Simulated assay, not measured.
Amino acid sequence: MTAIDKPVALVTGASSGIGLAIARRFAELGMQVVLVGRRQGALDAAASSLGAAALSLAADVTSPADLERLFAEVKARFGRLDVLVPNAGGGQHAPLGQITEAQFDQQFATNVKGVVFTVQMALPLMKPGASIVIVGSTASIDPGPTMSIYGATKAAVRNLVRSWVSDLKGSGIRINIVSPGPTNTASLRDAFGEHAEEGMAFLTAKSPIGRIGEPDEIAAVAAFLASDAASYVNGVELFADGGASQA
Rank of each mutant, 00 (worst) to 15 (best):
L84P: 11
L84I: 12
L84S: 13
V85Y: 12
P86E: 03
P86G: 07
P86Q: 02
P86V: 07
P86M: 05
P86H: 02
P86A: 06
P86L: 07
P86F: 06
P86N: 03
N87R: 02
N87L: 02
N87Y: 05
A88P: 14
A88S: 14
A88K: 08
G89H: 08
G89L: 09
G89Q: 09
G89V: 11
G90T: 10
G90V: 06
G90P: 10
G90S: 08
G90D: 10
G91K: 05
G91T: 09
Q92C: 00
Q92A: 13
H93N: 15
H93A: 15
H93T: 11
H93P: 00
H93W: 10
A94N: 06
P95E: 12
P95I: 14
P95N: 06
L96G: 09
G97E: 09
G97V: 02
Q98T: 04
Q98R: 15
Q98I: 03
Q98E: 15
I99W: 03
I99N: 06
I99G: 04
T100M: 01
A102D: 15
A102N: 10
Q103G: 14
Q103I: 08
F104V: 13
F104R: 09
F104M: 05
F104S: 07
D105R: 14
D105Q: 13
D105T: 05
D105L: 10
Q106I: 00
Q106P: 00
Q106D: 11
Q106G: 04
Q107D: 01
Q107M: 15
Q107R: 05
F108P: 00
F108T: 03
F108D: 08
A109N: 12
A109Y: 03
T110N: 00
T110F: 00
N111K: 09
N111V: 03
N111F: 08
V112G: 01
V112N: 01
V112L: 14
K113N: 11
K113E: 01
K113V: 04
K113F: 06
G114Q: 07
G114S: 07
G114C: 07
V115K: 02
V115N: 04
V115G: 07
V115L: 07
V116C: 05
V116W: 12
V116H: 11
V116K: 07
V116F: 15
F117W: 13
F117T: 04
F117V: 06
T118R: 08
T118F: 09
T118I: 03
V119W: 03
V119P: 08
V119M: 07
V119S: 05
Q120C: 03
